[in-house]
Design a protein around this nucleic acid. Sequence first.
DNA 1: ATATGTGAAATCTTTCACAGCG
DNA 2: CGCTGTGAAAGATTTCACATAT
Lengths: 206, 206
Amino acid sequence: MVDKMIPDIVVGRLPRYLQALEHLLNEGIQTTSSQELGDLIGISAAQIRKDLSQYGEFGKQGRGYSIPFLVEQLHNILNVNRTWEMVLVGAGNLGHAIANYQGFMEHGFHIAMIFDNDPERIGTLIGDIEVQPESMLVDLTRRHGIKVAMITVPASAAQAVADELVLAGVLAILNYSPITLIVPDNVNVQYIDPIIHLQRMTYYLD
Amino acid sequence: MVDKMIPDIVVGRLPRYLQALEHLLNEGIQTTSSQELGDLIGISAAQIRKDLSQYGEFGKQGRGYSIPFLVEQLHNILNVNRTWEMVLVGAGNLGHAIANYQGFMEHGFHIAMIFDNDPERIGTLIGDIEVQPESMLVDLTRRHGIKVAMITVPASAAQAVADELVLAGVLAILNYSPITLIVPDNVNVQYIDPIIHLQRMTYYLD
DNA sequence: ATATGTGAAATCTTTCACAGCG
DNA sequence: CGCTGTGAAAGATTTCACATAT
């Protein structure tokens, strides 16, 4: 059932299903239906069933889905049944906030190293991690086999950082800086930019 | 040409066009083509032309687009040819980082007020803004006619905050907390959740 | 009685390809 | 000649609706 080229748009919804299912589980709920889950996240029941059916038959007719089982399956599908080591580049305000966010650990993402090129910041501690000079990024990242990175440097520095990350073998980049990064085809980039989201909403305001 | 129910998926690309165009303008470039712009952000030239043509004829055949003119048009379309006052709810680590981010001001978004319900934080200054008690959120937000809000409180508090914002007349919410918010149809919500993005990428890693 | 999984239909989105203008 | 704007075609995605299993 798997790997018959499942569209990325489907993949993009799976983490949202997982998030909602984990939320239900936290409330002690053990079973749900595509209808209930859909109401919770604003997606049609048919779409949820269709999406999940790409990967297997996880439900029981007449009864719905076992949440613990479905959560486990989604962990497997999304490759988050393990810990992912990450590097964080940029130890400014945003970098600090991200480094201190507990949610990463709770979901199996661990910040292993933090880099910056500001001498004032190098050597300082964020939590229990020492900020390292950016000159060591490529070497250390490659030596640790790290595949996931987050960029929180200013826009003017972001492409150079991305180039170094690619050189170091990183394959997934979460980019908080407000520019489009140019990377090879085998490297995945996701963007977080509040301005983009705000403008998408102001469009609909008088 | 406008308002023939243009799909939201088109609206969602407009801010990215604007971002790239402003970037070109910063480099002193005055003219571009759908091809060049598309190469820059990884979108086909045909799609860019089609998207823009929903709103008017902004280009010149044989010559391409005047960047200053197109930027101005996109500002009008996205309603960002003005300043939007915003409220920020949640003065923790992330709230601080966001409150200090210069990018908002540069794009016409201004944080007018910050709220929190932690007595330790109330009364403290973030930049030049004093953190106010959440009990005053509805009243102050409504009195100032503020329509845009950002939520950076823990997931457990986010829905209650959203309810208050709706009560206060807010119509656009940028939600940094990792839950789906339930709001009336006329209220727009956008989500920023790094875990969702990371899981979407780990899917593609071995 | 209830809710899944799924072909088929409907809808939406993107790409093609070219007339037409500068 | 180059590049836009745009109908038409192709392709992708979502919804429908129902056979099927508990």
